[in-house]
Amino acid sequence: MTAAAEGSPAFGMTRARRNALLRSEPVQGFALISPTFLYALILLVLPILVVIAHSFWTQNYLTIDRTFTLENYRIALTEPIYRDLLWRSLYISLTVSLFTVVLAYPIAYFISFHGGRHKSLWLFLITIPFWTSYLLRVMSWKVILGYNGVLNSGLMGLGVIDEPSTALLYNSTAVIITLTHAWAAFAILPIFVSLEKVDRTLVEAAKDLGDGPIRSFLRVTLPLSAPGVISAALIVMIPTVGDYVTPKLVGGKDGVMIANAIQAQFGKASNWPLGAALSVTTMLIVTLIAGATVLILRAAQRLAR
């Protein structure tokens, strides 16, 4: 804008120079974003720091004892109930992200390579169910999988089974099915975006040089779309670890996940520090697994070449 913008704010700033600085690009840009930035700082960063602080404290009935302790983490990591819940949450979220990515890839491929003029219509069609209430979508799975539900009554009507099956609802499989459905669109979008970036001439070149459709897909298209696959896996995995509604509605006793235990600590059980430690542990484990997933997929990408 002006020369002063690039110069450092030297000592003895005159009014003109100060004005020029105030009008400079970085200052204006930062001023403009600061309300939103402050909002995120106060309502996201500060709260997470408070949670981390709480995880090192203890609670005596209603008062918080602020002496540093690792006791909560010992409980979170060694008590069988929390250890099992953490493992199950991880297992469920990894399974769900695997399923969503594998199911989503062909769709993203179809839209990107064969969508033609209707690309945006397809994308719209696929994303619109996901703007409807998450709670309602989980509820509809309860209606489908229930003892007196759609699937049981339908199968009985067709004569496939004689009496309603109790195996459909209230277990981790029901949680996996529901979550796979709920997060499908979130997996399609990143994969689609990365497939759109694949240079079509490279695919042509592979074919001209004698690669069949499968080999050219495995050696060109798939490795080039790996970033999309990685982000799809992460975008599904991270939020599903902490899912509360699905296990509560369709999980039953065998499908309880860590978020339900965290909620209990802030509700009935009322042990905030333990709840905080469980939250921090979940966040750390998710971060570690996310990092590991990125590394493994990158390694696989390198091997594929």
Partner: peptide
């Protein structure tokens, strides 16, 4: 990309 439960309980605490 944060689990919603984390956002919810950390806000609640503050």
């Amino acid at each position: 990309v944060l689990p919603e439960i984390i956002v919810a309980i950390s806000l609640l605490l503050v």
